[in-house]
Simulated scan of single mutants.
Amino acid sequence: MDVRFATNPDDARHYGTDELRRRYLVQGMFTPGELRLTYSHQDRVVLGGAVPLAEPLRLGAYDPLRTAYFAERRELAVFCTGGRGTVTADGAEFDLGPRDLVYLGMGTREIALSSADPADPARLYLFSTPAHQAHPAVLVRESDVEGVELGSPDNANVRTLRKYVDGTTVRSCQLMMGYTALAPGSVWNTMPAHTHVRRTECYLYFDLGPDDRVLHLMGRPEESRHLVVADREAVISPSWSMHSGAGTANYSFVWAMAGENYDFADMDHVAMDELR
């Protein structure tokens, strides 16, 4: 488990490209046959990827968490970005197809991840937050979630947003999660940008071609920075940082949040003339 310490904007303004990528970009999560996790001190989230092959991959006890098992004091969502797989939680099996999600509440002791076909393995994205309440496990199909249509062709930002875990479809302690898909010909997401100082948000970009990239905008609005992001790479966005992006082609991204306020609409919007 990789560990990333929290950062503040006064320090971040001095980071060069390599330092920005080292602190905020999460790469190499989807390695065949492995489960790779990153623990961030930004709201103490854990994010990672699993690509099970012939044998299941199991979440264990990790020293940075100092608990007897992974979800002893945590909740977890697993989102399938491709392939088909199964999440087994305390003996209950949840079969996931592309863009399906399973939520597991605090206190789930045994968690295993497997693929239906090792030749075309599941690519499973994991996002976990601290929890103080236990909520039941819920399987959410993409077809269960009504999409919200946003944007316009004139602004190259036509997109469909789906909320999986936000207190409506699934109730959680503090974890929020969903995904947004851009239409062909659209490249911009979340512009105008926003911040939310009560929550950390992470973006996992996927559905990108091998030669496609997203320029992810971050930092204080008056002093922006960018990261060049490839397929199935994630960005940790601290509460003080805006988050937006533009791609070389249309793409999808999983958004996941943790923090003090359990309100999806709690955002501080940034006017275009404030951006620098």
Rank of each mutant, 00 (worst) to 15 (best):
R220G: 05
P238E: 02
S239Q: 12
V138R: 15
R198T: 14
T190F: 07
T168D: 15
A156Y: 09
V138Q: 15
T195K: 03
V229R: 03
H226D: 00
A234M: 11
G178D: 05
S152I: 06
D154S: 10
S239V: 05
S237I: 08
M191E: 12
V158L: 11
S224D: 09
K163D: 13
I236C: 08
P192H: 01
D231M: 05
T160P: 10
E149P: 04
H194R: 02
T180H: 09
A134W: 08
N189K: 00
A134L: 07
V158N: 03
M177R: 00
D231L: 03
T160R: 15
N189R: 02
A156S: 12
T168H: 14
G185T: 08
E146Q: 15
Y164N: 04
R171F: 08
N157A: 05
R232C: 09
H196F: 04
T200K: 09
L182P: 00
E233Y: 11
E149D: 13
S143C: 12
M191P: 04
A134C: 07
Q174H: 06
D207C: 08
L208Q: 11
V165T: 04
V145A: 10
R159H: 11
E201W: 00
R220T: 07
G167N: 13
C173Q: 10
L182D: 00
D166C: 14
L208P: 09
N189S: 07
S237W: 00
L161M: 12
P221A: 12
N155S: 13
S186W: 02
D207W: 05
T169G: 13
L139Y: 06
H135G: 11
S186N: 07
Q174L: 05
D211G: 03
G147Q: 09
V170P: 08
C202Y: 07
T200C: 15
M177A: 11
V158Y: 01
S172Q: 02
L208M: 15
E149C: 10
Y164L: 07
G178A: 06
P238F: 03
E146W: 11
R213E: 13
R225T: 09
G147E: 12
M176I: 07
E201S: 04
D166H: 14
Y205M: 13
P136T: 06
R162G: 06
D212Q: 11
L204T: 01
A181M: 10
L175C: 05
D231T: 00
S239P: 11
Q174S: 10
A156I: 02
P221Q: 10
G219N: 03
P210S: 04
E146P: 06
T200S: 14
L204N: 11
